[in-house]
Simulated assay, not measured.
Amino acid sequence: MITFGEMESGVSYTQRQGVYGIIYNEHENLIALVKTDDGKYFLPGGGLEGSESHYDCLVREGIEEMGKLLEIGEWIGRAQRYFYSENDREYYLADGHFYFASIVGKAGEPIGADHQLKWLKTGAAVKKIFHEHQSWAIQRAMAMIENN
């Protein structure tokens, strides 16, 4: 598995399992990202809760972050990133599971008022996204599409 960031010695990391969707508009070469109020961009998705399946997690996160119903598609891959969260003041090992996804309906307004759905060109998405392992997933997804 590919890992980004450096594990600092003597630091205790909280492992965070997450599931994320690559939502791609091939006609306009756009990727759906979620922008938070602090100006950071992320793939739609988030942390697994309890015994939640990958599918259930991504569906829940789509409703919470974007107010959208998602359909989960093909597996893209898995990657990790070591990082320090300024917001939580905690060290994490983010363990991301990535899938293609598509928006199949509206579920109302997003639950998270600090999240906005933004569509960016793939190149801009790769550069602006906050987590390196999510950038890797976008690049891997685009390579998979090109090879089909």
Results as ranks from 00 to 15, higher is better:
27 H>L: 02
27 H>F: 02
28 E>H: 06
28 E>R: 09
29 N>F: 00
31 I>Q: 01
33 L>G: 00
33 L>T: 01
36 T>Y: 06
36 T>R: 09
36 T>N: 06
37 D>K: 14
37 D>V: 12
37 D>Q: 13
37 D>L: 15
38 D>A: 07
39 G>C: 07
40 K>E: 06
40 K>N: 07
42 F>C: 00
43 L>K: 00
45 G>I: 01
46 G>E: 00
46 G>N: 03
48 L>R: 07
48 L>H: 03
49 E>N: 13
51 S>I: 10
52 E>A: 11
56 D>L: 15
56 D>Q: 15
56 D>K: 15
56 D>C: 14
57 C>H: 10
58 L>F: 13
58 L>I: 03
58 L>V: 02
60 R>C: 05
61 E>S: 14
61 E>P: 09
61 E>L: 10
61 E>G: 11
62 G>F: 07
62 G>E: 12
62 G>W: 12
63 I>N: 11
64 E>G: 08
65 E>N: 14
65 E>H: 12
66 M>L: 15
66 M>Q: 11
67 G>I: 08
67 G>R: 13
67 G>C: 12
67 G>S: 11
68 K>L: 05
69 L>M: 10
69 L>F: 09
69 L>V: 10
71 E>F: 12
71 E>K: 15
71 E>N: 14
71 E>L: 11
73 G>D: 14
75 W>E: 13
76 I>R: 01
76 I>Q: 06
76 I>K: 01
78 R>N: 13
78 R>C: 04
78 R>T: 10
78 R>G: 04
80 Q>F: 11
80 Q>A: 14
80 Q>E: 13
80 Q>K: 15
81 R>M: 12
82 Y>V: 08
82 Y>G: 08
83 F>H: 13
83 F>E: 00
84 Y>L: 07
84 Y>C: 10
85 S>I: 09
85 S>C: 10
85 S>T: 09
85 S>D: 10
86 E>R: 09
89 R>L: 05
89 R>H: 12
89 R>C: 05
90 E>P: 03
90 E>D: 11
95 D>A: 07
95 D>V: 05
97 H>M: 05
97 H>K: 07
98 F>Q: 01
99 Y>T: 04
99 Y>C: 04
101 A>E: 07
101 A>I: 02
101 A>C: 04
104 V>L: 05
104 V>D: 04
104 V>I: 14
105 G>M: 05
106 K>A: 05
107 A>D: 05
107 A>Q: 06
108 G>R: 10
109 E>A: 13
110 P>C: 08
110 P>R: 10
112 G>F: 12
112 G>N: 08
113 A>I: 07
